[in-house]
Design a protein around this nucleic acid. Structure first.
Lengths: 188, 188
DNA sequence: CCGCAATGGAACATCACTGTTCCACTACGG
DNA sequence: CCGTAGTGGAACAGTGATGTTCCATTGCGG
């Protein structure tokens, strides 16, 4: 660790604020700091103690997002099975990111943050697609960058579908993976 | 017509403002009115003459969006061919909506506008899917509401892909339709 | 040429959000 | 029991967006 450790209390408050920020900003990227503080069950003053300026909070959210995303990618164990199978697992793991998915879509310029480009391991994804192209489980006519767009769009569709319709999380995940699988598969 | 006709000049300015609003808001839903006015090549004062408050402008944008959407739906001639074929044409027509697609995604609460629910003909879409379920061209495991989410998500993916990568409009439309076709098709 | 429609710019009050300071309160360990 | 860390609330000035008013300019038809 380069930075000094925080007390348990501070670390907990910090996480509460980040979590609240993700939830609130995913619904409204222009939300005020007061809204976020309230959602975190914290005074606005306290929020400013942890993140002096709005941009600091946003940077914190990006960092937290990158961390969660990388954890999910690791959990997907992309190096085993066919390309399509790995993609299927990745889909399921990313789906669990929940609000973060909405946030990524609601505020694309957050993803434009330099930290995102440098710390998120896109290469793993492209590797999976290349493997899928080679082993015949992924349509070679669909480039890797396009499939990345498709995957995210589909995940977002699933998450917002979950919010709007009265269906179970599991059921929606089934729809998402089935749809992605169909979109990706080689045509006869 | 219930409302009084406007002079040619006024109608043109009004359209310029609405078009600029769609373009600017699709990139940043929190854009200021000054930005929109500048993009429209119009003074802020003039903008206020056409739309007294911000909410009036947003209502105008929604109305314009509904109009364009309905025109596109009509152009798709949903009543001919198989369900999947009709969906394919709808996809192509909606893709031409361009910025409007981004706007619908960038500001979902705009679509929550009551005018949207009442004036957009969702029934036509559900009819197409039902036909596709019946004629075997659309997987019956995928409900109509879900396919609606999928279609929009895919269109948005295509449009943002176009903005980020150096590919032709036509090429992207090909990717979108191919992907949607695969996602929708019945599994073997 | 006159008058009207349409416009742009300047100036203004208002408002919400922001970032900051200061003070009071609570909890917890020594 | 005392001191400190963590916190919340009130108050404040600065800033930018908003909505309004007023005036000057342009262009076009009668």
């Amino acid at each position: 660790m380069v930075t000094t450790e925080e007390s348990g209390s501070r670390a907990r408050t910090r996480q509460a604020i980040l979590q609240a920020a993700i939830e609130v900003l995913s619904r409204n990227p222009a939300a005020s700091l007061a809204e976020i503080a309230t959602a975190a069950g914290v005074g606005r003053t306290t929020l400013h103690r942890y993140f002096a300026e709005r941009s600091d909070l946003l940077a914190g959210v990006v960092a937290e997002g990158v961390t969660r995303l990388n954890r999910a990618t690791r959990r997907a164990r992309l190096d085993s099975g066919s390309g399509a199978e790995a993609l299927h697992r990745l889909c399921a793991e990313y789906f669990e990111l929940g609000d973060l998915l909405s946030l990524i879509f609601a505020d694309p310029q957050l993803v434009a943050d330099p930290a995102w480009a440098t710390e998120v391991c896109d290469d793993d994804f492209h590797g999976v697609v290349a493997r899928g192209h080679a082993d015949g489980s992924i349509d070679p006519a669909l480039p890797s960058t396009w499939l990345q767009s498709v995957l995210w769009a589909q995940l977002y569709a699933g998450w917002s579908y979950l919010a709007e319709h009265d269906v179970s999380r599991h059921e929606v995940l089934g729809l998402v993976t089935r749809t992605v699988a169909g979109a990706v598969a080689l045509r006869r």
